[in-house]
Amino acid sequence: MPGGRLTHDERLGIAAGLAEGHGFAEIARGLGRPTSTVTREVARNGGARGYAADRAHRATARRARRQQPTFADTGPGAGEEARRAFVEEFATLLVTAGIPRMVARVLSCLYTTDTGALTAADLVERLRVSPASVSKAVGYLADLDLLRRERSGRRERYVVDDDVWLRAWATNARVHLAWAEAAGRGVAVFGARTPAGARLAEMAEFFGRLGDDMSGGPADAAVADVLTVTAALVQVGAPVSRAALAAGLGWAADRVGAALQDAVRRPDLTGPVTVRRIRGSRYAAIARLSDEQRHALTAVVRST
């Protein structure tokens, strides 16, 4: 059933799909499951590169048997000092990952409550800080989609959901893909053979691959479109517009645009050539050769 827990056989299917380079959506269709189910399963169990079906199945069983947390929401009790110490220790770990300290303390405090929800007054009392500090930290976390606000009577509560880290993962994937796209546009502006263009090209490739890895990678159909568009550019042998490619291939303009975007962002998919945006909306396939190799080959061809 789509709403039931994943079976061991389904987890084996996910592992097999990842090994074959399939995207999350494609794996989910094969299992008859929502894409979000597969995305959450992989993110919780090592990511696309570290997922193992047996280990994931055992981890799920352990989570199902886990007892309720002991950090009570109501007032201090036995072990309160130890719990406060852990909140600060957890916050320090978050700070080492680049999160501002007050933001880390608020997130740690929310995450270690049974309900995962506290009011501003609760946070002020527990952390012994000013309301302004809490308000600023909550705004920071809300912008990152790491918490949500909900009304509880006349008060507002701040809630950390169980899938908070999955949402953070997905947000980072989108950010990395946006960086890759922006760097690809920069290559067209500065020129692929300039030092700035070369650095931007490396940035586009790195963040494009990282973003795709985090989101499950492009589906087989998308990779096939990249290869077809790349072959078409090689065949033409000159810069060509998106509209001309669409007309020549008999594809919709959106399909050509998506394939070109993937080709620019993921040069690891385009083999011995690199797809570059040259002028305006024109694209070209450029062989991956150094200037010295180009000159030498040109001289050899002219001499024969």
Rank of each mutant, 00 (worst) to 15 (best):
V87F: 11
E125L: 11
T115M: 12
P76S: 12
V256N: 05
S135E: 07
L269S: 02
S135V: 13
T39M: 12
R105L: 12
D254C: 07
G184Y: 07
G197R: 01
D225S: 08
A253E: 11
G139Y: 10
G50A: 15
E205W: 07
M1N: 12
A19V: 13
A53T: 06
T171I: 11
I99Q: 08
R11Y: 09
G17W: 01
R49E: 08
A19W: 11
E80Q: 08
S303F: 02
D54Y: 13
V236H: 09
A182C: 04
L141D: 01
A221E: 14
L147Q: 05
F207K: 06
G186Q: 03
L245K: 05
A247D: 11
A168K: 03
V95Q: 11
V273G: 00
A43P: 01
A284F: 04
G46R: 10
R44M: 06
D254F: 07
I286D: 01
A299C: 00
T113I: 07
R65W: 07
F207I: 05
V223T: 09
E156H: 09
T274N: 10
G13A: 08
R277M: 03
H8R: 15
R55Y: 08
V175Q: 14
D54C: 10
A59N: 09
R167I: 10
S290F: 00
E181C: 03
V189L: 09
L141H: 01
S135T: 15
T92W: 13
V42D: 07
A28Q: 02
T113N: 05
A15L: 09
A222H: 04
G191K: 01
R157D: 11
M203V: 15
A132M: 15
G216C: 02
G3L: 12
A168L: 10
M214P: 00
A61P: 04
Y158W: 10
S108G: 07
V229C: 04
H22Y: 15
A53Y: 06
L289R: 03
D163V: 15
G280A: 06
Y111I: 09
H57L: 04
R11S: 08
S215F: 01
A299R: 00
A243H: 14
E181D: 10
F206L: 12
G32D: 15
Q261K: 06
V103C: 03
S152D: 14
D122Q: 12
